[in-house]
Design a protein around this nucleic acid. Structure first.
Lengths: 157, 157
DNA sequence: TCAATTTGACCATCTTTGACTATTATATCG
DNA sequence: CGATATAATAGTCAAAGATGGTCAAATTGA
């Protein structure tokens, strides 16, 4: 069997031929392939993860959707994964600041963006026991990093 | 399927093109879209809340109306304290996002900065029980807000 | 056998509708 | 004229509908 997941992956990538993002209805797609809706999530999780260079956005309820966004794939293609990896599950304020500065040095963020990011992961932003702070800081930083690498073409929000 | 709520939101915003306020008849609007009158209230509540920068005024009875007023805030020193106040000790992701969008509308942050900020306060950035998330989110947001206003006064780009 | 895939039951969130309530203007009655 | 009934609006809230998400068990293919 030609691997359902592969077929769905192919289908989505074809849809993305032009444009860095595509929007689908989970249920419609599932019906198109005659499979369980959650199969779609499986494909997204295994073939369109951040490590694969994609970000998924979705919305539930009436008029819901699933949007697959392809991130920059320039020389910085692997940088995100590398950085996310480096951040890991917890990180100190200093290390976080260093990573942010690195982003700035690479011209991936502006001075102001860097400042905002540092503010988000500063000690006093996290009112918790220190070790917990590091876990939290890592989560916040990972989220911001992913955002920085997103590629919205002409997108607006 | 064109998302009734989105269509109504669009319609109202188009009406507001010129002018900071617009007045409509709830029932007429509902009839125009062929929906229940309370649908209008839903749209107003979810897309024209105070956090989104709007205020709703209305009057019942004969000649009744619903007036949507866009708040305008100047980037003066009071806005920061107003916002910090609004954030308080805890805040939901939606409210935080709305505040950030407001900053963007006021040209106090760029699109990218706004995106980074939203990412920093997103649900999945905070791996904790929900109520704790709100407290944390408030702290992170307050820190970023303060930073944004520092940039503004320091003026440096 | 084992890892990848597929499915299904149950959960979370957003939207739409409708029944019931509250308020205000206008017509009517004494 | 003043009190009251009636009509015209808008508001609330909870249930139903429409999507998407999660997780673990079942299945499959190498």
């Amino acid at each position: 069997m030609a691997q359902l997941s592969d077929a769905i992956e192919r289908f989505i990538k074809d849809l993305m031929q032009e444009g860095a993002q595509v929007e689908v209805k989970r249920n419609e797609l599932a019906q198109h392939f005659g499979c369980a809706p959650s199969q779609i999530n499986y494909v997204l999780a295994t073939r369109f993860s951040v490590d694969h260079g994609y970000v998924i956005e979705s919305r539930r309820g009436g008029g819901g959707y699933v949007r697959i966004v392809r991130m920059h794939s320039s020389p910085d293609g692997n940088l995100l994964s590398a950085l996310l990896n480096r951040v890991g599950s917890e990180i100190s304020e200093e290390a976080a600041a260093a990573i942010i500065t690195h982003l700035y040095d690479c011209k991936l963020v502006t001075v102001n963006e860097a400042r905002i990011m540092r503010a988000a992961v500063a000690q006093n932003a996290l009112a918790l026991p220190v070790n917990a702070k590091n876990v939290l800081r890592a989560a916040v930083l990972r989220n911001m990093l992913t955002q920085v690498f997103k590629n919205y073409e002409g997108g607006d929000h």
